[in-house]
């Protein structure tokens, strides 16, 4: 495992695009958190109240998740590069098995998701301590980070599968971005309930718009019917993990069967 991870890392260590995209992500996330925090419109909490513990965990993971698209594109690049340079093929010729090649790739993506989750923890702690007047219940709602990690992994494995399927970077990125940005289209096609089970929506809803769920729960009568069913967080998390496992298995099967 460590050996495979080292091989993958030596491919990325001097790949400037990788570092540039990580830096863009690292800069954009705090800027966006700060920017969103200035918004004063209901149903959001007032101003910087959003960043008080324990609200900060929901808010920070929500804002950070918007930039997961950027990192998803990075995952597409990492995977399609090896098709583009024919180095998947060369790695196998040189003595890796097909299983090892895909495991190595998945491991590095997994580590990337871990790093992103850690960075988000740091961001939440930073803004939480900066804006909270009194430091109480710091780690209440900390579970959002775990859910955020699953979400990131979900986006990454979907990007991974697309890259393995399509092999071409431009095409994979366009389709990934369309799925990411226009996921609301499924609402019109599959209805309010069905569309929630689409992988992109399952992943996106893991870090819900802050406070929105409480607002909806408070609705009564006819107003509430439009939101008749919102999948509960535990079920959503389980479905997300299911999708992740399916994406990984599909990627493996495709790469194992294909001529390179």
């Amino acid at each position: 495992m460590i050996h495979l991870l080292k091989i993958e890392y030596s491919k990325l260590r001097h790949y400037s695009t990788f570092w540039v995209m990580l830096i863009i992500y690292a800069v954009m996330v705090p800027l966006a958190i700060f920017g969103f925090a200035q918004l004063e419109r209901p149903p959001l909490l007032n101003g910087s109240d959003k960043l008080h513990f324990p609200h900060t965990w929901n808010f920070v993971t929500y804002v950070a998740s918007i930039f997961n698209m950027l990192l998803g594109i990075l995952v597409v690049l990492i995977v399609t590069n090896d098709f583009n340079f024919r180095t998947f093929k060369q790695n196998i010729i040189d003595g890796l098995s097909r299983g090892q090649v895909i495991t190595a790739k998945f491991l590095i993506v997994f580590v990337l998701a871990l790093v992103v989750a850690l960075y988000t923890i740091l961001m939440a702690l930073f803004f939480g301590f900066l804006y909270s007047d009194e430091i109480v219940s710091v780690f209440e709602n900390f579970y959002f980070v775990g859910i955020y990690f699953i979400q990131t992994l979900g986006y990454f494995t979907l990007a991974f599968l697309l890259a393995i399927l399509l092999k071409k970077p431009a095409l994979s990125i366009v389709i990934y971005a369309i799925l990411f940005v226009f996921k609301f289209i499924f609402y019109f096609v599959l209805g309010a309930i069905g569309s929630q089970f689409i992988p992109m929506n399952i992943f996106a809803d893991l870090t819900p718009f802050p406070i929105l769920q409480e607002q909806i729960a408070m609705l009564e009568g006819p107003q509430a019917e439009g939101f008749a069913l919102i999948i509960s967080q535990p079920i959503r998390t389980a479905v997300a993990i299911g999708y992740i496992i399916i994406f990984i298995i599909l990627s493996r099967v495709i790469l194992k069967k294909r001529d390179l």
């Binding site: 340079f85 024919r86 060369q90």
Partner: peptide, 8 residues
């Protein structure tokens, strides 16, 4: 073909 990472 020679298959290598172009940026390395």
């Amino acid at each position: 073909t020679p298959n290598f990472y172009p940026y390395l």
